[in-house]
Simulated assay, not measured.
Amino acid sequence: MDISPSVQSFVFHFGEMGSRWGFNRTVGQMYALLVVTERPLSANELAETLNISRGNVSMGMKELQSWRLVQVSHIPGDRKEYYRVTGSIWDMANTIFEERKKREVDPTLSLLRDNLLEEPKDQEEAFALEKMQEIHDLLEMLTQWSGELQRLSPEKLSTLMKLGAGVSKMLSMKDQLFAKNNQPNSDS
């Protein structure tokens, strides 16, 4: 399967980004190719297009299935398995976030909870536990907030994001206005 230079550029870049999201470069490339291809692709097509082995494709597809990002489909009369992405781009973002939370945030929260049950033995440990409590509270707040965001429809989430930029500008204007009002008057 031939892909255009722009698609190839995207696929390679997505592979690099995938390594930052928790899966390896090749798996990221496979997923990117599936995202930008309208029809489901076979393992052979993925291997040929990305110049990787069939075994690498097989392992990568298992990983993407464990992340719940791809699904297998079959074409009547064809014994091959075909792969396609699951859901929309919003679904992809939610799924990646959920999986990263399960793999990274949840174990950290669990460790922090266990540590916070301990009584400090001295002032140094009391300080360390205080900082762990702050980290715990921040992660809990972010987890609750992200859970609320994930329950929104893509349309409402998009609206909220647009509002967020406006709210940020309004808060900056408020800060500037109050800063001017709180300056001493030089006329007195």
Rank of each mutant, 00 (worst) to 15 (best):
E125M: 12
L160G: 04
N24L: 02
N115D: 14
S4Y: 05
M59D: 12
Q150V: 02
L41F: 08
R84S: 11
E104P: 03
N56K: 00
K80W: 01
D2P: 01
D114H: 14
D122A: 15
L160P: 01
L139T: 13
L41H: 06
D175I: 05
R151Q: 13
Q8N: 13
E118L: 14
K180E: 15
W21Y: 14
G60Y: 09
N44D: 11
N44S: 07
R79S: 13
W21E: 14
L157F: 15
Q123R: 09
L116Q: 11
L129C: 07
E130W: 07
E63Q: 12
R68Y: 11
D175H: 07
D106I: 15
E98I: 05
I89D: 03
M161W: 08
L142W: 05
P40G: 00
V35F: 09
V57W: 00
Q8I: 04
V11G: 05
T37D: 10
L50Y: 00
D114T: 15
M141R: 08
L138I: 09
F127M: 13
A32C: 13
M170W: 10
A126G: 05
D91E: 11
E118C: 15
S66K: 12
M141T: 09
A43F: 03
V57T: 03
W67G: 04
Q29L: 12
K102I: 01
R84G: 06
A32K: 03
L157P: 01
L64V: 04
S110M: 12
L163F: 10
G15N: 14
E38L: 02
D114I: 15
V70R: 03
L171K: 05
L33E: 08
T37Q: 10
A32Y: 06
V85D: 00
L138H: 14
A93T: 02
V70C: 03
D122C: 14
A165K: 13
L33T: 08
M173N: 08
A165I: 11
S73R: 03
K131C: 10
E155S: 15
S146A: 15
S6V: 05
M161Q: 10
P40L: 00
V35K: 07
S146I: 02
S186D: 15
Q65E: 13
E99S: 10
G15L: 10
S146F: 04
R20C: 09
T49I: 01
E119Y: 12
T26P: 04
V27C: 05
N115C: 10
P40A: 04
D187T: 01
G77P: 08
L111E: 12
P184W: 09
M173I: 08
R103T: 06
E81I: 04
K131Y: 09
Q65I: 10
Q71Y: 01
R79K: 11
F178Q: 08
L157S: 15
F178L: 14
